[in-house]
Design a protein around this nucleic acid. Structure first.
Lengths: 228, 228
DNA sequence: CGACCATTTGATATGGATCAAGCGATGTGG
DNA sequence: CCACATCGCTTGATCCATATCAAATGGTCG
């Protein structure tokens, strides 16, 4: 359960300048961020924002992966979510970040002022609808997490793999950007249990592990049956 | 873990007619529901709406308590939330109810058409803001639940008691409308563990149990220290 | 090559589940 | 109004899944 927090302090941000040519229409949320956002690259384990900081910016992952998390008083770390390429994060309901955010791998993100988005939303109902949809997705994922956290270790791990496969839009393989410790802190387990569960799934021929970060789903339907 | 679902089937609703004189201004969400909503009384354990039903109505608790829940394929029941007097529930992000709702105790609720609210929101930004705030609160509670569910049994139970005390706006006592089974299914524990934990807290002089549904918080600050 | 870190594997401990029984409150029919 | 059934809660005994402690293995980088 104890998780030494990695790469604390200093957000040596490397501003990479404006985003290139727009790749999405400027009247969608994602599009707006691409057009007006500045691209910043964060090294592995670098803090993007801290717990309790003012939530003045909204982010979109261009490449790499990001985690949001909270460290409890006794050192336990709970990961709130993983954000992969294309995901928007950092949009809060209050005006402070409830969780901190860090780069899981080297990550390039686009940054845009929240106030700019809010302003746009008040004029453009399409943007407003997308902001709403974004919150909805967060809410739905939270709901799903709650259901996941009352299950057994195997069900949690399998649920996690299927979630990742779905988000990566692949049916039969996942490239995991995060460590076993990250997965454990996301699922409320220990690294040992995550590792053992994966080994046992491999023995059951449900998955294969060519290397620790790459997971082949050899029998997705069997996996789907395992999560109740 | 197994929880025989109580009082299934039949929603013998007892329509009590219009709400009385408005007790809140008509330009707030709560106010609107009170002005335009019909009051319906549900007996203990009666279903208010089912999992997967169309979410055409939004509800506000006038008296009593309501739970939302989902029964997993293997019979385990996970409770999503408890709604107490004054709380609004049933507002979904999609157009289906993700969870079912039941009356925990006999409960009087006001019912209003969702479409009416949405229509109002598009004209009245105050209502829109309140709908947003409502979703935000759900989101924040979900976040808190996730943190709760990775903790020990004692931390979960204490967290639950403090949450209830806070929502009931009392510092030193809580009248629980729900059974041990409800609490267990909310916290991802068993009734036995909930019961034992309460007994142990009583032995530590942190709480007192004049009867099983009434809990006195004898040492709130000690309780608060227990949840990390 | 050697140091370091992530991952896996092994041995043991333990918190909470499960199985089982008792107890008190509440309600029902005689 | 009382005997009795029922239900929710508590308590006890045991078991098991996962945590914890410990060590071996493997991959990566200087």
């Amino acid at each position: 359960m104890l998780a030494q927090t990695p790469g604390r302090n200093g957000s040596s941000r490397q501003v990479a300048g404006r985003a290139g040519p727009a790749m999405a229409p400027a009247d969608t949320l994602a599009g707006v961020i691409e057009v007006v956002g500045a691209a910043i690259t964060f090294a592995r384990n670098r803090e993007i924002y801290g717990d309790g900081e003012r939530a003045d910016y909204v982010y979109k992952v261009v490449s790499g992966a990001v985690r949001t998390y909270k460290v409890l008083a006794d050192g336990r770390r709970q990961i709130g979510a993983f954000y992969l390429t294309g995901d928007v994060f950092g949009l809060e309901v209050g005006d402070e970040h409830a969780l901190a955010a860090e780069a899981v791998t080297e990550a390039k993100v686009l940054v845009v002022k929240r106030s700019a988005l809010i302003g746009l939303a008040s004029r453009d109902s399409e943007i407003a609808r997308e902001l709403w949809a974004l919150m909805s997705r967060e809410l739905a994922r939270g709901q799903a997490r709650i259901l996941l956290l009352v299950k057994t270790a195997q069900e949690r791990v399998v649920g996690f793999l299927l979630e990742m496969a779905e988000r990566r839009q692949t049916v039969d393989a996942v490239e995991l950007p995060m460590s076993r410790q990250d997965i454990a802190d996301y699922l409320g387990l220990t690294t040992e249990t995550v590792s053992r569960t994966l080994t046992s799934l491999e023995n059951d021929a449900a998955i294969a592990l060519p290397n620790s970060r790459r997971i082949l789903l050899r029998n997705p339907s069997a996996l789907r049956r395992m999560i109740v």
